[in-house]
Structures are given as structure tokens and as C-alpha cells.
Design a protein around this nucleic acid. Structure first.
Length: 644
DNA sequence: CGGACAGTTGCCGGT
DNA sequence: CACCGGCAACTGTCC
């Protein structure tokens, strides 16, 4: 047998520093090494990815490709325009591959894809090497150390991590690379099935990244451009790439006081140019920065300060603490698989009858990507929230920064997530997570899902009476309203007194500030003046409705995998007039208004006009009669309050 | 079993 | 400006 001919399959590990998998590939002392990327339709069409995150990916790929070429001018990142599952078997033959090496993925889709690829490799007689490298500790090992259960608190993660062992020391960047072999390809391209395109809203033109064959329009395996994707140009000011983030990290570590005393809750969500946190998350997501490299470098600064008897911060609020949370969410995802991303059939996720619940495919038990409209008004609320037109300047500034820049501060995420779910609109966290998935350049499924569950008090966190105010919270961090003025420019000249509640400004003040506060966000200009919308609801009223709804749902005490949730009988545990789509005795899985019964008859439930009717459905109690009693009394109180 | 206590980051009004 | 308790009160873990 000759020397190894290695295919190194880059995925979200777009770096050369500290890569256990890449090191394993080099340790084979290969005759040839092909660094490749498979352009996957799962990313192009079937995930929510807006232009900003696509651009960030493209930046990271181009940067890595240049770094590879610096080490070996015959080599580069070869981007092959076909999903791995169909492409790799052909490539094994065409390039006479002996070894396939890649970094381990633990998300549900990644595992499924990789299992298929490994099966194909086995058939082709190709040896596969997989190394964990995406997290501080191998997520599967963490789960094992946590008795096979998802890590639901930072304490559990730390205990499990300690059992797994020390966080591996970073691996040096290679100094040279083997040549790639012959790269001419005489194989048919299997064009992926576009199916429904989830990113249509972001495209001006036709998606054409597969149109010119496996090697692309210039036949050079180049990274596709946004134009090829038919996408509108990116608007983010943040630039991807390993070399970019390693420079950033140098600057960060040089400021040993910032690095050593970092406390997340003390950093301002309203800070911009520069932001108050270090913005490494998108680089961690694409693997342009190794979390272990980051961890050990920060720890070195902290330990030096400790020796010098200077103050230091500790997990969970410190910088290393942030990386621990990331590992916690990865480990939870690793064991819960697809169900982690949805309420339905999720053992650790509380069932709350949110508005706009996900549609569920009863056969696969998975959410479909669509949602049920239980109330048309809530669709408007969701749209206004997603586009920064709620009439709450603090919320709107955050959502507009998210849409234009693709990154917002962690506490800003808290604020808008609480507002959409348990502390405002009572809309499903799954709707919010989808919007973040589209818009964030640092979207990491595990962290995004985990944080939405946290903020909506469906998992990880439960103190729902700690509710973010869309007025007070912004004011606390930015009394002058400079953040709002930056991202909601129509309010630029609004007096400080009204900046968080412009609808309270007298007409004269509005005119002086050059803005009318009116309407629902449809109108942007009137009589030559800008128009900013009125608040989409009265916040104190909605806050009370949400609090009562949460108390009631907690008292009912169902989880996503409860038989009553799975078969739709959960409605019997909720009064018809409880907040959310709770009318009737039986609803579909996850809160659907219509439901195919076991006998095949479709039952349609109460229309929204019937909402508020005092009649109870008389269904059987939830878990205990006592809990049911408690929930009822709470609800009756809510209705008395509302009636006033 | 029961009680104490911790849990990454609420708000408000007081000292 | 920092810190405290009241608000009305959650869960999960630990002893």
C-alpha cells in the first residue's frame, strides 16, 4: 500500500490553529492532502441563513484558503459545489482517496450526514478519522459524565467537564502542508434538490451556485459569492476569517484588565463603536477561532493577574465562563438531538401554550418550519418585532441592529427574547429562534435554542417574574438614548425625556424632533416628516397577562414529551380563556388548532372570536387536582383584572 | 421527607 | 454609585 491520500473535509472548523482533526490528517504523513469544502444545499436552501452570515462564511473560507496557499502555493481550500453525501463517494474514486478526516459534529443534522458519509467511506474502503474539536470537551463525553443526561446548569457542566479531564492544550498551527493531488475532475455533478427555498426573502436574483458545475464558473474551486447565491449584499460591518480573529484576540489579551476582570452582566448592551463585549462568537461558530485556544489564553492572563494579586473574575460571569455555557448547550443538544430545537417531544422543555405554535409532522415528530395562526394580531406583533417596528424604541433599536449588523449584545438578546415570549407578546420562542437564525452572523443552533429556552423560561431558567422592561432596561444602560438614536434614526432628535416612550411626547415636541409617532409601522413618512409607530400594545397589561399565563402553565406542569402534549389532550388541562390557543378539549400536537384524530376525522377548534368566554371546558385535571385548582384561581384573578 | 439554598445579568425605591 | 430588601415567588439539588 502506498502513502496515504487524504481528503480533509472542512466544515465549521475554518482554521489552521488548534485543530485536532487537521493535525490527525497531517500526522498521516500523506502523499497528497486535499483541503475541501462541500457546498451543502442544507445550508444554501434548507437552513435560515441571511446575507450577513453567508458573507461571514465566505470571508472565513477565503481567509483560510489564503492561509493554506501561504503554506503551500499549490494548495487552497477547494470548494466543491455538491453536498458531501452525493459527492464524496465519487471523489473517493476520482482522487484515489485512502483517508477521510474531519472534525466531529454533534448536532442532529450533522450526525445524520456524517453517519451516511462514514457508511459510504466504509463501502469504498476509505479509512475515516474523526476528532472532537468544536468544544472544550467532547460533548458526548460530557453527556456520559453527566449520567447520560443533558447538562441543564452550568454547575452540572463544570462537574461533568472536571470528570472528563483538563481542557486540551492548544495545538500549534502547521508550518507546511503536503501538495494536493491532481484536481481535474471527470465526474457528474449531482445537483441538489432545491425544494422549498427558506432564504428566498434575501434573494434579488436566481440562486446559481450549483449552475456551473462542481468546480464553479471559473473551474477553479473558488468560494461562491453572494451574487452567485442571488443574495442582496451583506450589510454587516463584521469581517470573518481566522487571521482577523487572531489579531482581535491579540488586542483583547493585551488588555489584561479587560480580559481578566470581564463580567458579562456588567457589560453594556447599549454600547456600540466599540461594543462592550469582544465579538468572538461568530468566529467560534465557524471555527475560525478555537474555543480551547481562546480558553487557555484567557486563563493565562487571569492566572498572571491572580499571582500579582490583582482582581480577577470567575465563571460563570468571566470570559471563560462564557465558553462553559457554550459547552453546556452543545452537550444538551448532543443528547437531545432534533428534539432539542423544539418543544414538541422534548423531555426537558416545559410546555407552555404560546401563540403561533409550530406545526408538527406527527409522523416524524418534528416541527415543520411553519406555524399555526391562532390569532392574526399575533402575526402582526411577530412581524413588527422582527423588523424593529414595535413602537418600543429600545426593542426596535436592537432588532434593527440585528438585521443590519448581524450581531447584538447578549443582554440585548435577553431583552428582545423576553419581550417576544414570556414578557410581552406570549409568542412561541420557536418563532424568535427562527428570526435569530436568519439574522445572526454568530448563529450557533445549540446556543441560540438554549438561550431562547432560557429567556422564555421553558428550560434552563424559571424565574419568570424577573421580567425585562422595554423602557427601564434600556434607560438603565443608556439614559441619553444614544443607542436608540443610532439605530432608530427617526428618533435621533427626540428629547431624552421621551426617547424610550416617544408616544408620550406632545405633538409640538414630536414636530420639533421631526417625527410623528403614529400608526403601526406601515407608514414611514407623512407630510415630509418621518413616522415612528405607536407601541403595539400596552406593556404593563401584556406583562400581567404573560405572568398569569406563565404561572398557569407552570402549575399545569406539562413537558414537551408528555403524552398529553403528544396527542393533543393537553388542552383539557387549560381553561378555554387561558392565554394562548387553549380553547377546546383537544388540539393538535404542539398547539395546532386543527388535528387529525386517530380515527381520521379532523376537528376544528374554537375561533378567536370565542376567546374570553367564561365557560370552562370541564376537562380532566392535568397532573394533580390541586395544581389545577391553583391554576384556575390565578386565571380567574387575571380575568377580573382585565375586566376592569 | 422537608427545608435550605443556589441559580450568569429584573425593577423599584430605599439607604 | 453600590448595595439592599421587597416584590411575590420559580425550579432543581443537596443535605
Amino acid at each position: 500500500m502506498g502513502k496515504p491520500r487524504v481528503l480533509y473535509w472542512f466544515r465549521t472548523d475554518l482554521r489552521l490553529h488548534d485543530s485536532p482533526a487537521f493535525k490527525a490528517a497531517l500526522d498521516l504523513k500523506p502523499e497528497v492532502l486535499y483541503p475541501i469544502w462541500c457546498w451543502d444545499s442544507h445550508y444554501v436552501y434548507h437552513s435560515r441563513v441571511g446575507p450577513n452570515r453567508f458573507q461571514f462564511l465566505i470571508d472565513c473560507q477565503n481567509d483560510l484558503s489564503q492561509s493554506i496557499t501561504k503554506l503551500n502555493k499549490k494548495s487552497k481550500l477547494f470548494v466543491l459545489r455538491e453536498p458531501a453525501v452525493t459527492l464524496l463517494p465519487k471523489l473517493f474514486k476520482a482522487w484515489k482517496i485512502s483517508h477521510l478526516v474531519f472534525e466531529k459534529d454533534t448536532d442532529a443534522y450533522g450526525r445524520q450526514r456524517d453517519a451516511q458519509v462514514m457508511e459510504q467511506a466504509k463501502k469504498a474502503g476509505v479509512e475515516v478519522i474523526v476528532k472532537s474539536g468544536r468544544t472544550l470537551w467532547d460533548s458526548d463525553e460530557v453527556v456520559k459524565a453527566n449520567n447520560g443526561k443533558p447538562t441543564m446548569s452550568i454547575g452540572q457542566l463544570q462537574a461533568a467537564g472536571a470528570k472528563v479531564g483538563d481542557v486540551a492544550a492548544p495545538i500549534d498551527t502547521p508550518k507546511s502542508l503536503p501538495d494536493p493531488g491532481e484536481t481535474s475532475l471527470d465526474i457528474e455533478q449531482t445537483k441538489p434538490n432545491a425544494g422549498s427555498d427558506m432564504n428566498e426573502q434575501f434573494r434579488d436574483g436566481e440562486e446559481s451556485s450549483y449552475a456551473s458545475g462542481i468546480a464553479g464558473p471559473k473551474n477553479d474551486f473558488a468560494v461562491p459569492s453572494l451574487e452567485e447565491l442571488g443574495m442582496k449584499p451583506a450589510t454587516t460591518p463584521h469581517k470573518g476569517g481566522e487571521s482577523v480573529v487572531l489579531d482581535m484576540l491579540d488586542g483583547l489579551l493585551a488588555d489584561e484588565e479587560y480580559t481578566g476582570t470581564f463580567e458579562k452582566p456588567k457589560t453594556s448592551p447599549a454600547a456600540f463603536e466599540p461594543q462592550s463585549t469582544c465579538l468572538t462568537s461568530p468566529y467560534l461558530h465557524f471555527g475560525a477561532l478555537s474555543c480551547r485556544h481562546f480558553y487557555h489564553n484567557v486563563l493565562r492572563v487571569v492566572e498572571e493577574r491572580r499571582k500579582a494579586k490583582k482582581p480577577v473574575s470567575e465563571p460563570p460571569t468571566s470570559l471563560t465562563g462564557q465558553l462553559l455555557f457554550r459547552d453546556m448547550y452543545f452537550a444538551a443538544q448532543a443528547v437531545l438531538s432534533y428534539s432539542f430545537g423544539q418543544t414538541y417531544n422534548n423531555s426537558h422543555c416545559r410546555f407552555i401554550p404560546w401563540h403561533l405554535p409550530s406545526k408538527v409532522d406527527v409522523n416524524t415528530q418534528l416541527i415543520t418550519g411553519g406555524y399555526e395562526v391562532d390569532d392574526e394580531e399575533k402575526v402582526k406583533w411577530l412581524e413588527r418585532w422582527a423588523h424593529g417596528k414595535t413602537g418600543f424604541p429600545w426593542i426596535d433599536a436592537i432588532m434593527r441592529q440585528l438585521r443590519s449588523e448581524g450581531w447584538i449584545h447578549h443582554l440585548a438578546r435577553h431583552s428582545v427574547a423576553c419581550f417576544l415570549t414570556r414578557g410581552g407578546a406570549y409568542i412561541s420562542w420557536e418563532r424568535g429562534a427562527e428570526v435569530f437564525e436568519e439574522l445572526l452572523i454568530d448563529h450557533e443552533a445549540a446556543c441560540n435554542i438554549g438561550n431562547w429556552q432560557w429567556l422564555s423560561c421553558t428550560a434552563f431558567f424559571s424565574q419568570f417574574y424577573r421580567c425585562y422592561s422595554p423602557i427601564a432596561f434600556g434607560k438603565k444602560w443608556d439614559p441619553e438614548g444614544n443607542y436608540v438614536r443610532k439605530f432608530v434614526p427617526e428618533l435621533e432628535n427626540m428629547p431624552k425625556k421621551y426617547i424610550y416612550e416617544p408616544h408620550k411626547a406632545p405633538i409640538q415636541d414630536q414636530k420639533k424632533a421631526g417625527v410623528f409617532v403614529a400608526g403601526d409601522g406601515q407608514e414611514t413618512e407623512k407630510d415630509g416628516l418621518a413616522v415612528y409607530p405607536k407601541p403595539m400594545f400596552d406593556f404593563p397589561t401584556q406583562r400581567d397577562i404573560c405572568l398569569d399565563g406563565m404561572k398557569n402553565a407552570y402549575a399545569v406542569g406539562l413537558y414537551g414529551n408528555d403524552p398529553k402534549v403528544l396527542d393533543g389532550t393537553w388542552k383539557q388541562a387549560f381553561a378555554d380563556n387561558a392565554e394562548g390557543p387553549t380553547e377546546g378539549k383537544q388540539g393538535g400536537p404542539g398547539g395546532m388548532m386543527t388535528f387529525e384524530d386517530a380515527d381520521g376525522t379532523e376537528e376544528t377548534h374554537a375561533s378567536p372570536q370565542k376567546r374570553g368566554a367564561k365557560k370552562q371546558d370541564g376537562g380532566s385535571p392535568a397532573k394533580t387536582g390541586e395544581k389545577r385548582e391553583r391554576s384556575q384561581s390565578t386565571l380567574d384573578g387575571a380575568f377580573k383584572k382585565k375586566a376592569k
